[in-house]
């Protein structure tokens, strides 16, 4: 057995650990897409994209934040919002226990962080979802934080960026969760009325009620390569239509081909892509402001 084989066996035995990727001390990891064994330092430096097959691994919201906004520019808002179990919901586990577990696992109070930040010097209001917290599901906290984040952008007249990765509405909050779709979309209505920029970045995976609300409402809808984006689950669709689905069904490239996505942006280009769009959409406004300043002088 070669040393690489040994690592491969070891890693496949520890699949749950390697798929998490943030455990220190793991020198090697195996690409879940192509099976290539990667030196974890290189992998980290490559922003958790497999250098061989370019598979984009999922990131935590903080990892995503670090590669998206200017260093030390993020000011978090509403971090003290936590879920309430308004239905006293229990399935095979109590929702209350799921909340405690998710918090322990991620250190987050719910599936999103929101705040103000700068991207190449430009102010933005930004929300980043975390799939690790109950599948990034949208309950009242996620809905409220996104709404407040957009409202902040409207108030400060700055662009809003929401980076989603979410399985959809959180069933354990019943209709309160469905209503978050309406609430977040309503906030975007007011943001749009002010002619402000909203960029929706749909990351792997973005499905269900999240896709069918704020995530599809970007002036620009963008994504990373091969991200899963859809409304209904593929299994449900297969059962409904009793047909095999296309191979790349509900992947970024498929959505772009069907007109739902503006651009597929590789991870290492995401920040500069966002900065470029912000700059170009702000050009006219800035020119007017400059002219007004000159006139005043």
């Amino acid at each position: 057995m070669s040393i690489l084989d040994w690592f491969a066996t070891k890693n496949s035995a520890n699949k749950s650990v390697t798929s998490k990727l943030d455990i220190p001390g793991n020198l090697w990891i195996k690409c879940i897409a192509c099976g290539e064994t990667l030196y974890s330092k290189d992998f980290e430096q490559n922003l958790k994209v497999c250098p061989k097959c370019e598979h984009h691994f999922r990131l935590t919201c903080h990892e995503r934040l670090n590669i998206t906004v200017d260093a030390d520019s993020f000011i978090e808002i509403d971090y003290d919002l936590s879920p309430a179990d308004s239905l006293d919901f229990t399935d095979i586990k109590a929702y209350k226990d799921r909340i405690v577990e998710a918090n322990k696992k991620t250190g987050l109070n719910d599936a999103i962080i929101t705040g103000e930040a700068k991207i190449n010097g430009s102010d933005v209001a930004i929300g980043i979802m975390d799939f690790g917290y109950m599948g990034g599901s949208m309950g009242a906290v996620v809905g409220e934080k996104i709404t407040r984040c957009i409202e902040l952008a409207t108030k400060k007249q700055i662009p809003a960026i929401i980076m989603s990765s979410s399985g959809g509405a959180r069933m354990q909050e019943g209709m309160n969760s469905l209503m978050q779709m309406a609430k977040t979309s309503a906030a975007l209505y007011r943001h749009k009325q002010q002619k402000l920029l909203f960029i929706s970045v749909m990351l792997d995976p973005t499905t269900g009620g999240t896709t069918a609300s704020f995530a599809m409402l970007g002036d620009l809808n963008i994504t990373e390569p091969k991200a899963l984006i859809g409304f209904a689950g593929a299994r449900v669709i297969e059962q409904t239509i009793k047909q095999k689905l296309p191979k790349d069904f509900q992947r970024s490239e498929y959505l772009q081909e069907h007109g739902m996505i503006d651009h597929i942006v590789p991870r290492n280009k995401m920040k500069s892509f966002l900065a470029n769009i912000i700059e170009m959409t702000n050009y006219h406004k800035q020119k007017i402001e400059e002219t007004e300043t000159v006139e005043q002088e």
Binding site: M181, A182, S185, A186, L188, Y189, K192, T211, A212, S213, F214, A215, M216, L217, G230, F231, A232, G233, V236, I237, T240, I241, Q243, L245, F249, Q250, H258, G259, M260
Partner: peptide, 22 residues
Amino acid sequence: AYPGLTSEERGVAEAIALNLQE
């Protein structure tokens, strides 16, 4: 909403989302 291939291809999520907003 119809969970089908045609529905996804023509953007059912976007269609619902836009109604919520508008």
